[in-house]
């Protein structure tokens, strides 16, 4: 390039640099103003990690999305198995890879790791997580260790704008509250304080169901191979540590199962190709009536939660007998 072109390149780079600096500064201000919401649903990761660190092996570790957080009663499992239970489940959108990597370093001798991911974790990009991972990293900065694959980093990068959008809304809410343009909002049902000492979500147990029976149509038809290999790796890792990993199908309503039967069956067929993963039952075994769900096709209400917990703990109790 000739001299005049070089000068133009410098001007261009300076202008791009200046605009980028302005954007980064704005993002920084938004994040600072939004601050930390101590009672945020995802902030429960702090308590769950603390619990996982202090609970000695052998123990039961529950892994999955919100279906596990909402749908199991750890106290019953603890009582039945006479082992302490830690429910690590928060939300499906943090991605299955993250969830599995999160518990991996803590697996010890005699532990029983129960994995029950949502069906969506087997398709498309969900196992790599979405913008919720950013917030999770905000509450638990050590969580970057759970990002192992390039696809997880790519998913993180892709979702940065969504993270910024939610932060800007929080910042806006805070500003309008401070300036008294808006009354202070009531605490959300989905909050950190809604979990009990085991990490189970319990705030919904006394509430009446609000699910309208609708479920999203599954558009993504590409099975995510990495999900199966991640599960297999964890299973092998657990075996090396003299621990066990058991896979359960999540509970879903009958209508969802009927509508998505072929879509679910593809997961089952693929799962059969991984003999190292110990799978309990079939998806059909976990199907429940529509009125057993609280506010989504994965969140069980109190009655169904009890029924499901008893069934699972009975299985775990007699698993190797």
């Amino acid at each position: 390039m000739v001299g005049s072109s070089m000068a133009q390149v410098k001007v261009l780079l300076c202008k791009i640099g200046f605009l980028s600096a302005l954007i980064i500064l704005t993002c920084f201000i938004i994040i600072v103003v939004a601050g930390s919401q101590k009672n945020h649903y995802l902030a429960s990761v702090i308590d769950k990690h603390k619990l996982l660190k202090v609970t000695q092996s052998p123990r039961v570790i529950l892994v999955g999305g919100s279906n596990v957080a909402f749908g199991l009663d750890s106290a019953i499992i603890q009582h039945e198995l006479r082992l302490p239970v830690v429910n690590m489940a928060i939300k499906a959108t943090i991605g299955l890879h993250y969830m599995l990597e999160e518990v991996k370093p803590f697996i010890g001798h005699g532990d029983l790791v129960m994995v029950m991911p949502e069906y969506e974790q087997f398709y498309g990009d969900l196992p790599n997580g979405n913008d919720d991972v950013w917030l999770l990293l905000w509450y638990s900065p050590d969580g970057y260790r759970n990002l192992r694959s390039p696809s997880q980093y790519l998913a993180l990068l892709k979702s940065f704008h969504v993270f910024m959008f939610t932060r800007s809304r929080v910042a806006w809410d805070k500003l309008t509250t401070v300036l008294r343009m808006k009354p202070e909002s009531k605490p959300d049902l989905y909050s950190r304080s809604s979990f009990n000492e085991h990490g189970d979500f319990v705030a919904h147990l006394s509430l009446s169901p609000s699910w309208d029976g609708c479920f999203p149509t599954q558009k993504d038809e590409t099975l995510n191979e990495e999900t199966f290999s991640s599960l297999q790796n964890l299973s092998k890792y657990a075996a090396r540590k003299k621990a066990k990993m058991v896979f359960f199908w999540p509970s879903i309503p009958e209508s969802f199962y009927v509508a998505q039967k072929a879509w679910i069956q593809r997961i089952v067929s693929k799962m059969n190709q991984y003999p190292d993963i110990r799978v309990h039952g079939t998806p059909f075994d976990s199907v429940l009536p529509v009125n057993n769900f609280f506010d989504s096709p994965y969140h069980l209400n109190a009655t169904a939660r009890l029924k499901r917990t008893l069934a699972i703990s009975r299985f775990l109790l007699h698993m190797d007998k």
Partner: peptide, 10 residues
């Protein structure tokens, strides 16, 4: 650019 960063819908 800020709109693209905050309001991109995917």
């Amino acid at each position: 650019v800020m709109s693209l960063l905050l309001f991109t819908f995917t």
